[in-house]
């Protein structure tokens, strides 16, 4: 556990010194959120239409900015074989994966919250957002997203079509999670209900656990030769 936090600290310090991930991703989130909101305002959508599309917009923006951020998550560690050095220093692939998932998860959750706030302020939907329940859904989705994207970005990193291959690999396998996120968010925002026995409310945490388990057990095979 201590090793995971030390590796997490390493990522934080690296980020504080370079600022490449946070600065770029926050700017990107602000831009995307603002452009989408103004685009919809320009389309003069009725309040009901904005309410109906709000959940989908939030998750589409998350998907888009999340992909751009997560393709950079492993960049500094895979560059110059920094992971090989960390492995030689005694860190296990599981620790490397968990620390990176923690760092990426916190970053993606913060960006997601920022995008949600921007869209909520600019679009002014009529429903009351149930923040706590939406946060729980977001944690599950981010957990799935970060686990899959760490595995697949490491795979795409060494390919000939690095930047193009990553979304091609990620999007199809992420689809069940995306579908679940849309379904539960629509229920929460539009119908103001959160049925604990509904399929997707049960499936999302299960998928998060499965993908996290897959990430832990398979990460060594994607970073080692």
């Amino acid at each position: 556990m201590r090793a995971i936090f030390i590796l997490f600290q390493k990522d934080l310090i690296h980020e504080r010194n370079s600022g490449e991930l946070i600065l770029v991703s926050v700017t990107l989130c602000l831009l995307l959120g603002t452009l989408t909101a103004f685009g919809l305002r320009e389309a003069v959508l009725a309040p009901e239409a904005i309410d109906r599309t709000f959940g989908t917009l939030v998750w589409l923006l998350f998907l888009f900015s999340g992909m751009l951020v997560s393709v950079r998550l492993l960049d500094s560690d895979l560059r110059d074989s920094a992971y090989q050095a960390l492995l030689l220093s005694g860190a296990s692939p599981t620790q490397l994966f968990l620390s990176k998932a923690l760092f990426g998860g916190i970053l993606l959750l913060a960006l997601h919250a920022l995008q949600f706030a921007i869209l909520y302020i600019f679009l002014q939907p009529t429903f009351s957002p149930q923040i706590l329940l939406f946060f729980l859904i977001s944690v599950c989705v981010v957990c799935c997203f970060v686990s899959l994207s760490l595995l697949l970005s490491a795979i795409a990193e060494h390919s000939r079509l690095k930047a193009v291959l990553f979304p091609i690999l990620l999007l199809p396998v992420l689809f069940p999670v995306f579908f679940g996120a849309l379904s539960t968010t629509q229920d929460l925002f539009l119908n103001q209900q959160f049925d604990l026995t509904s399929f997707w409310v049960e499936a999302l945490p299960a998928l998060a656990l499965v993908y996290l388990g897959l990430g832990v057990s398979l990460f060594e095979y994607v970073i080692l030769e």
Partner: peptide
Amino acid sequence: HSAVLGIIGTLT
């Protein structure tokens, strides 16, 4: 890499 993607894909 194929093995990892194959396992993830099969879970769908």
